[in-house]
Design a binder for these strands. Structure first.
Lengths: 325, 325
DNA sequence: TTGAAAGCGCTAACAA
DNA sequence: TTGTTAGCGCTTTCAA
């Protein structure tokens, strides 16, 4: 769409760009009459300043790149939802980019953002091939500063880590305290294992060493949880912790089909606080990510623009629901 | 991060910006030796062109605004996921903006995009107050062109509508053909009603006028579907169509808790092809949005940049799953 | 084959 | 109080 410029406004009003600019930025030292004229013309011609030009001049970058493998996970959506609100109320806007592309494409994308985005937030679950490529790009003097979330980044990048073990530990401790004794970990993620190990390391008094940790290796998708059903029942466990809510939902489906009462026969806990956790039958106990804490830190970094890399760790937290009562 | 510029590269190499630019853009008419030098320096200093400057000069806008009320719905995520891939492979990038804000904030956001984004895609479920405001902004000569998706926009905006009725009609026809006779519509959306009406208007021969349409007014959330359980059972229906998958999932929860066999006792169909539809127990038959058709049209508009507004209608389609077998 | 220079739209130091 | 002007980093016409 045709855009009217400051210069045109100056010509139309018979004033200089400086004066027009003064009026439009509400600065002092303009006689009311001229101010009126400019304001009227701006209104009449629907003047809107060109941010690209302004930002270029001010060397300001008002966009923030958000890199993620898959926008589809509920967790990501929660995070971006919250982040967009914080960013935009501070005059920044999120630009989305998929991480699942070739290094060359990734590099092209980041180059295309140069001069427009000042920061790039790398969300978790970065694919193998991208890690290497990103680290290289972040290490180079790209005109972008990286913020790695939930993923160790390069030395000079900011890194906000999520302590998944803390919430898992709380979840397992809660299971033990409620009388469960044979806790099965179904999944494959080290962070979850660590949380479980910690919980067993500080066994509540009520257990008196009579608890047992079991393990079943599986990936974290819905189908994996469903398919693991028979093995989980055979294991003799009275509680299962799954790496993800999606996976736990898969097991709940299996349990429903086979008349396994949850949580009476078996307590179930997932991880992520995914929407399926709230909608499943029964509603799923889970471990939630520290979304708002992370996002407020991201905003702080962007606004403060510190030279030295920020490194911080945020705990996850257990959310008890029907499946583990 | 400090950024090296074309000018600096020119100074370093002792050549003019024109020549450096020639080399970097791989244009002809540079002696190999000088070309070498420039390439070496560019590599050494990690030169990355400033897109803000380039786009300003070329009057090009490589970002596309995406406005939506809630990023959290699965449908939106599917759409944006697919759209990002298409956009970025054409050198465009999506900027996200929430629609749930005051008109003043919305206007500020769009102004902040001026000169950077050329198009703004308005996704469906626009809140009341925003509709008015958007229409006004789209009507004005803002330096942005609007593409309304699944929502009637202003005269000069592009409008891509979704014919929800078509998929609903197919769904209901399928229910009728499989022998269901009392079809309940649980929801409140006119588009769904219309689809049901159409299906009844062209009743399959097998029915011979012995089918009946029932209606129960409810909103489309999970809780609404759950809460409607008793009324649905009382209605005597042998099939239910819900406005949304979330709502259908709520009813499935109720059915599971009360031993109602789905689909034997009652067939269930939702709308949206939400992720919960695939994960629910049993998996939920639903009606899917024309995601890829819409997105390829969006891209076509952005690349072709037609003056006259594009107006098109896309059909939805029925996806049968376990809940209506 | 190469370079000088104008200009995209804006800001702000400086001069008048 | 107002205007002139340089320049953000880039592209490209035109002249050398």
């Amino acid at each position: 769409m045709a855009q009217i410029t400051l210069k045109q406004l100056a010509e139309l009003s018979g004033l200089s760009v400086r004066t027009v600019s003064r009026v439009l930025k509400n600065q002092a030292n303009v006689v009311p009459e001229k101010r009126e004229t400019v304001l009227r013309l701006a209104e009449q011609y629907h003047y809107v300043p060109n941010m690209a030009a302004r930002n270029l001049r001010l060397r300001k970058r008002s966009f923030v790149g958000i890199l993620c493998r898959d926008f589809g996970t509920e967790v990501f959506v929660q995070k971006i939802n919250d982040l967009e609100l914080r960013l935009s109320s501070a005059g920044y806007y999120p630009v989305l980019g998929h991480l699942d592309r070739s290094p060359a494409d990734l590099e092209r994308m980041l180059s295309d953002w140069a001069g427009i985005a000042g920061y790039v937030v790398v969300m978790n679950s970065v694919p193998e091939q991208a890690v290497e490529c990103l680290n290289e790009l972040a290490g180079r003097r790209l005109p972008l500063r990286f913020i790695f979330v939930d993923q160790p980044g390069t030395e000079n990048a900011h890194t906000l880590l999520i302590d998944r073990a803390s919430g898992v530990c709380d979840a397992v401790t809660s299971l033990l305290e409620s009388g469960r004794r044979r806790i099965l970990h179904c999944g494959c993620l080290a962070s979850r294992k660590e949380g479980i190990r910690k919980a067993f390391a500080r066994l509540p008094d009520s257990c008196a060493g009579r608890a047992e940790a079991l393990y079943l290796e599986r990936h974290g998708e819905f189908e994996d949880g469903y398919g693991a059903g028979p093995r989980i029942l055979d294991s003799g466990a009275d509680a299962v912790f799954f790496d993800t809510d999606r996976m736990a939902a898969g097991f709940l489906k299996y349990a429903a089909e086979h008349g396994i009462e949850i949580p009476r026969r078996m307590a179930v806990v997932g991880f992520d606080d995914d929407i399926v956790a709230r909608m499943s039958i029964p509603s799923l106990s889970t471990v939630a990510h520290p979304v708002s804490e992370i996002n407020s830190t991201i905003l702080e970094i962007i606004e403060r623009n510190p030279e030295e890399p920020v490194r911080r760790m945020f705990p996850t937290r257990f959310i008890p629901r029907e499946s583990s009562r």
